[in-house]
């Protein structure tokens, strides 16, 4: 390709048609290309390298961290109540009362925590029947607004009022 068409020149070398210079203009983009070698030696990377390193780093970190089994603990009671065997549920008979509803119930507990309320089969009145309300009442046992213990107050009239502050 004939370069220097007409009289358009952009530098002194262009004007004098310097041998070296003419050669280099022919491979206009050659010098711009950054080779992989000098990129790594400069320790600078482009976006793709960054992604590669990020991916590898993340992967390596997960593999390294994932193999570490966390320490689990087994925490027994300090003083174990006799009636509790860890892993075996205890059942207590109780009564569900809510407004006008009444129902004899059996409360299933695990390690002292109530987890299920069912009707009491031994009751001659209900024969083990319950209502949705009675079943759901197990949730109300975990209501944070409940009294945490019994409260006794001797009032002026000398009577005991249960459950009053």
């Amino acid at each position: 390709m004939e370069k220097q068409l007409d009289n358009i020149w952009i530098g002194q070398k262009d004007l004098t048609r310097d041998e070296e210079f003419m050669k280099s203009t022919n491979q206009e983009f050659a010098e711009e290309q950054v080779t992989y070698a000098d990129m790594t030696s400069n320790l600078s990377g482009n976006r793709r390298d960054f992604l590669k390193f990020l991916g590898f780093g993340l992967g390596a970190a997960t593999v390294a961290a994932g193999c570490d089994i966390p320490v689990k603990r087994a925490i027994p009671y300090v003083i174990k109540p006799d009636q509790i065997v860890p892993g075996v549920a205890n059942y207590y008979a109780s009564t569900f009362v809510n407004g006008g509803d009444y129902c004899p119930v059996l409360v299933k507990t695990r390690e002292g925590r109530p987890i299920k309320i069912e009707g009491n089969d031994l009751s001659t009145i209900t024969g083990g029947g319950t209502s949705a309300r009675a079943q759901a009442s197990v949730l109300s046992l975990y209501d944070t607004n409940r009294f945490t213990g019994r409260r006794l107050k001797m009032a002026q009239d000398g009577k005991i009022h249960l459950g009053q502050k």
Partner: peptide
């Protein structure tokens, strides 16, 4: 029981 738990203190 299912568990053979560790003895309490």
């Amino acid at each position: 029981s299912k568990h053979s738990s560790i003895p309490s203190t």
